[in-house]
Structure formats: structure tokens, C-alpha cells
């Protein structure tokens, strides 16, 4: 079993033995781990579709996707521990830049001390002074 850490979630998946440096998953596990689904247009999430013509990308095979390779192809960082049992799928600098350049404040949801989730967008309609702090 392998644990995949998204930015704020984690998913356990069963890697497929395909050799190489990648992380090969069934399409079902890929969807659970990344939200991307295999459709006739390609690999899609929301309104984004990445075409994957047969034989064009070495991260895509008929029955499996190397999500590490796919993730890097999307311009996102991938890191894993020494035993290759925990993987972090991050967000690329280009995606961050685009999000900020729109000047729309990137939304997020974080818990308070009681575990109650708060989204930044819950405070839409007010001026928000968003400020970081730490105990350290």
C-alpha cells in the first residue's frame, strides 16, 4: 500500500508493479488520488482535460497511469519518502502564479482549534485581514 498526500488530503492506494521510477495506479485509484478521470477526451478534472493519445506519453498505458509522471507533466512537484511508500503531490509554481495574477484571493479551508472547518470564502462580503502567526 502507498499513501498519497495531496495538499490537504491523503489517500491510500495500491500501486501496480510496472517497474521504473513512477507510481503506477489503476484508473480508479488515480481518480481517488488526484480527482482526474479517464474520459474519451483524455484525463479530465472539472473543466480541464489533458489529451493522452495512445503511445504519446510514457505515463499512460491502457490499464494504468504513472501518476508521478503525469503530475510532473502537469508542471507539479512530486516528492516521496525513501521507501517510496508515502508520496506528496504538490502544486506547481506556474499554477500558483496564475492563481495570484488573477488577484482573486485563492480560497482554502482550514480547521479552528475545535476542528470546525472555515473557508476563506465564508467571509466574502467582508474586508478580510488575512494574517499568519505562529507560536515559534
Amino acid at each position: 500500500m502507498v499513501t498519497i498526500l495531496n495538499e490537504q488530503a491523503e489517500v491510500d492506494v495500491t500501486p501496480l508493479p510496472r517497474g521504473g521510477d513512477g507510481l503506477w495506479l489503476s484508473h480508479a485509484d488515480m481518480t481517488r488520488a488526484t480527482g482526474f478521470e479517464l474520459k474519451s477526451e483524455g484525463l479530465c478534472r472539472g473543466e480541464i482535460c489533458v489529451p493522452v493519445p495512445k503511445g504519446r506519453h510514457d505515463f499512460a498505458r491502457d490499464d494504468a497511469i504513472d501518476i508521478a509522471g503525469f503530475w510532473r507533466y502537469l508542471g507539479h512537484p512530486v516528492a516521496h519518502d525513501a521507501s517510496r511508500s508515502v508520496w506528496a503531490l504538490g502544486t506547481g509554481a506556474g499554477t500558483r502564479r496564475q492563481a495570484l495574477a488573477s488577484l482573486e484571493a485563492p480560497d482554502f479551508t482550514l480547521p479552528d482549534l475545535d476542528g470546525r472547518p472555515h473557508a476563506l470564502s465564508d467571509y466574502r462580503g467582508r474586508k478580510v485581514f488575512l494574517v499568519s502567526w505562529a507560536s515559534w
Binding site: 474586508k127 478580510v128 505562529a134
Partner: peptide, 10 residues
């Protein structure tokens, strides 16, 4: 119509 939203990086 103002609020602080403080986030502990911690």
C-alpha cells in the same frame, strides 16, 4: 464589514 482571519502556521 471587516474581519481578521488569523492562521497559525503551526
Amino acid at each position: 464589514g471587516f474581519t481578521v482571519v488569523a492562521v497559525a502556521l503551526d
